[in-house]
Design a binder for these strands. Structure first.
Lengths: 133, 133
DNA sequence: CATCTGTTATAGTTATAGTATAACAGATGA
DNA sequence: TCATCTGTTATACTATAACTATAACAGATG
């Protein structure tokens, strides 16, 4: 039941953010199914070799975004209802994150087509995971 | 010659990062042309109401990425040769930035088409700026 | 020679990230 | 009943990043 978490302690990206991303990717690829349990804050922290609070910080964020449910005594579970679908707030947020990426791409003469193909590659990569497992 | 810089001091995004993004966007939209001069670290800092070192940090980063040239006594200029075109390193970096965005989008049932259209909107938005000004 | 440029150095504050313990409260299973 | 698991909360400490505040230096310009 051990988790596919790969952290880069040298990265400038905070550990708890990496954790959030890895878990979201796990859900996106279907490696973790809705309703499935995640390790407790203590066991995951011990497995990875980090502090309990760092894991808790990531879990709290995922909970607030609707990715997981936390039962006080039972533990952590991927939202059985599935992740809340995109709303306008999410789209705005997504847009503001894409904004600087596309600005720089334009400066570097990346065409809209090439950019789109790159996104397509990533989408395919995630969906292959779903079929495979 | 005053610059279209809009900073959000409440944002969790560091000021110098916002500065970097705004200048890159200015170049992407053609508001600042290659060869054109940018304000000195001191004057820009004074205009915005921030410290000289914060501006310098942003300029240094833009210099290292090839967006601007810095002549020790003349000042700062948008790279007359144009911004270095995308290479493999840049594409890898771009991919790793898109990765978590697409993962979350998949979880939230954003289709590849919708995602692609969103990118297309942003591309168009930047290129409109070029025709207009 | 005063004034502009970027650059460098030093120092201080504030906030965030991460760790280290400890304790609490509710549920579970022996 | 009791040890053990769960998440939660509190406190404290270290390290680093972000930002500010001065000050000074070196080279070019008018």
């Amino acid at each position: 039941m051990n988790v596919f978490i790969n952290l880069d302690f040298e990265s400038k990206e905070p550990i708890y953010v990496q954790l959030i991303h890895q878990i979201i990717e796990g859900i996106a690829k279907g490696k973790i199914q809705p309703g499935e349990a995640l390790p407790s804050v203590r066991s995951l922290a011990a497995d990875i070799g980090i502090n309990l609070h760092t894991v808790n910080k990531a879990y709290q964020h995922l909970k607030q975004e609707g990715f997981i449910l936390i039962h006080r005594q039972k533990g952590v579970v991927v939202n059985p209802e599935g992740v809340p679908e995109a709303d306008d707030a999410y789209r705005d947020q997504l847009k503001s994150k894409l904004h600087p990426l596309i600005a720089e791409s334009i400066c570097r003469k990346v065409s809209e087509q090439e950019f789109s193909e790159l996104c397509s590659q990533l989408f395919t990569e995630f969906n292959e995971g779903k079929g495979g497992k």
